[in-house]
């Protein structure tokens, strides 16, 4: 069919867009991971002052404001503050910080479900705070975090399509270009894009599942947390 031929010809563009999508996702998740971990440690072990004035407002803001608004804030904010960053960078900052706010919840939950006995035992043999976190708390917390993190991965990957809005040439935008260039069947092309996203999510999930199996702590289970308020959950 003529239309399918169009898709076939558009494949290189779609693949380059897919690559950008993957890179964006990696950057978002990496920034979210590093900052999220720090925030979580701050929430569990940090001073009240730090928590109330820095961490909680940060989380509140980045979880209540929609991703699209955040993208625009960073994109237009850069020229407002006369800082020269690319659209790509703006997207990474916006979505990375946003992911950090969500990942910090994941890690915080994991750390708190480990139980304070572990920290006490570590300190009782003379380890300082940093050593205890590094050798005892984090190894366990990271393992426990994998299931909810798998969800975060899927969310970030799908939301990467929003980078479209600030002009980043990721998968969806490539799709748009193809439609515009060739007056092609938009339905078909966007459906193909959707399927590519689907495969990316699927493959990623499988990979994370394998990771989870490999690092499972023999005999250990995470406890569920029932008493969160709505704002804490979103």
């Amino acid at each position: 069919m003529d239309q399918l031929n169009l898709v076939w010809q558009g494949l290189p563009s779609l693949l380059s867009g897919t690559l950008v999508t993957i890179i964006l996702t990696i950057y978002f998740l990496a920034l979210g991971f590093l900052l999220g971990l720090l925030l979580a440690l701050g929430r569990v072990y940090g001073s009240r002052f730090l928590q109330l004035l820095v961490i909680r407002p940060f989380e509140r803001f980045f979880r209540a404001v929609p991703a699209l608004v955040l993208l625009f804030l960073f994109y237009f904010g850069s020229s407002f503050f006369r800082v020269d960053i690319s659209a790509f960078m703006a997207a990474v900052l916006a979505m990375g910080l946003r992911s950090a706010a969500y990942q910090s919840e994941i890690f915080r939950g994991a750390i708190q479900s480990i139980g304070e006995g572990q920290m006490r035992a570590a300190r009782s043999i003379g380890m300082n705070m940093l050593q205890s976190i590094r050798y005892v708390i984090l190894p366990q917390a990271l393992r426990l975090s994998i299931p909810p993190w798998t969800n975060e991965y899927a969310v970030v990957l799908k939301d990467s399509s929003l980078a479209y809005a600030v002009g980043v040439t990721e998968l969806l935008r490539q799709g748009r270009y193809i439609v515009a260039r060739t007056f092609g069947n938009a339905l078909l092309i966007y459906t193909v894009c959707a399927l590519i996203y689907f495969m990316l999510v699927f493959v990623g999930n499988q990979f994370l599942r394998i990771l989870e199996e490999k690092y499972k702590i023999p005999g250990y289970e995470i406890k569920t947390r029932k008493d969160q308020t709505v704002l804490e959950r979103i």
């Binding site: 899927a154 799908k158 939301d159 990467s160 399509s161 929003l162 479209y164 969806l172 799709g175 748009r176 439609v179 069947n185 938009a186 339905l187 078909l188 092309i189 966007y190 459906t191 894009c193 959707a194 399927l195 996203y197 689907f198 999510v201 699927f202």
Partner: peptide, 22 residues
Amino acid sequence: EIIRGTPLLTQLFILYFGLPSV
């Protein structure tokens, strides 16, 4: 699985830009 596995934005595009094709 399909709906949850694909971005909302793509779904909106399919409805708004895609359906006119048919």
